[in-house]
Amino acid sequence: MKQSGDQTGGQAGRLSGFARRAAISVFTVGVTLFARFVTAVLGIWVDNKPSRKRRIYFANHASHGDFILIWIVLPPRLRRRTRPVAGSDYWLKSRLRRFIGIDVFNAVLIDRNKETRTRDPIEIMQEAVDGGASLILFPEGTRNETDEPLQPFKAGLYHLARARPQLELVPVWIENLNRVMPKGEFIPVPLMCSVTFGPVLQLTGDETSEAFLARARDALLALRPAHNGGAA
């Protein structure tokens, strides 16, 4: 990486010069405007409010736009320190994805493939949290392409909570984005979306992985808006 004319401190490693920073700003503004145009996204806080404490936002995952919506409804002062956890297999594939994933959203990249990976994902997430970041995590592991509202959770959320018990775990329900851009389609349909933040969850001392993951999953499902609309 080039280091020319860099004086931005913490994020120095990836930013190289004015052009790159400008590209990041333009992209961020463009993506934000576009997402608002298509979804008019509304952030709803239920028994919870934005906080500077380190948090794990765990959300349902149906679309590549999920973390963008969460990111947009967070107050700007919290955005910079909130990093999505994403699969390196996807986000390192092309220069554009690398730019979006790493430069714009500062994603914490983990290798989802057990065979090829050289580092434990939990370790990488711990490092990010210890560095002061809050994380956006999709405990289903991959995008949900089934008719079920939520797939079974992977154990990563539990292991992370066990390793760093002081973290606040916040369930985040993203409504409707799966209808905006169903699997395999490339033109989004404009529909109103909402992002609902639920009350903070914490791991209790002796809770098993199964019990905790079930509780977290129920907490997330409880945030689904109750109306008759939408895809049955």
């Binding site: 008019a40 409707n176 349909v189 529909l191 109103m192 939408g230 895809a231």
Partner: peptide, 15 residues
Amino acid sequence: LREFMTLTHSRRADH
């Protein structure tokens, strides 16, 4: 239209 379509039964086949 964005508000109206949000409350309909549209499915993937209507994309």
